[in-house]
Amino acid sequence: MEAGSGGCALEKLLKKGAEADIYVTEWFGEEVVTKLRKPKTFMHPKLDAELRRHRTIREASFLSEAKEAGVLTPFIHYVDPSKGEIVMEYVKGTRFKDALLTGPFDRIAPLCVELGRCIAKLHGKNIVHGDLSTSNFIITDQTLTFIDFGLSSSSQRLEDKSVDLHLVKQILKSAHGKIWEKVFQLLLQGYGETAGSKQVDALQAKIKEIERRGRYARVE
């Protein structure tokens, strides 16, 4: 048993992620989640320490910034960059990824639009999430809570926002191959509702450009 901050015991492993391990713990009587970026033993210790520290700080600050943009994120209770640890609210709900996999599609459709709106809100405040994977949105009361801001950055560039959307597209294609087009269309619709259709057009053109840069992409 490992001791986390504040002496709470990290006993209940909720998810072994790539970035970090997620534990359900207790914080002053409240059930919370502790996200712990453990040392990655495959990396050089210097590189690993730098990345973990950096990403922990980023994650904590962007979890707050996203709230200012009007996107739900877990509340933070405690941050320890040197340990790579964040204690935050335990958001209970279904992962967007699982909802897409189980269906039915009609029930998820409004959430795809909502996802687009949320991403547009983040981008509107120049927050680029950096890891828009379908496992990083939790469905709560017909809206979404965003998590995993470790790769987030601040940028006004159309390129960076387009890469963000390209990532969603890629994960939809690879993990939800049969419905990806419908989901992505709804997402763009929602994005347009918040950011305007002109912005969506500009982003789509940029996404195409990024995809053409990909290895062995056919030049159209």
């Binding site: 890469v163 890629q170 994960i171 294609k173 690879s174 191959g177 840069r213 990909g214 290895r215």
Partner: peptide, 9 residues
């Protein structure tokens, strides 16, 4: 198909 999860940009 083999679906690309990630690649070099």
């Amino acid at each position: 198909r083999w679906r690309i999860f990630g690649e070099t940009l």
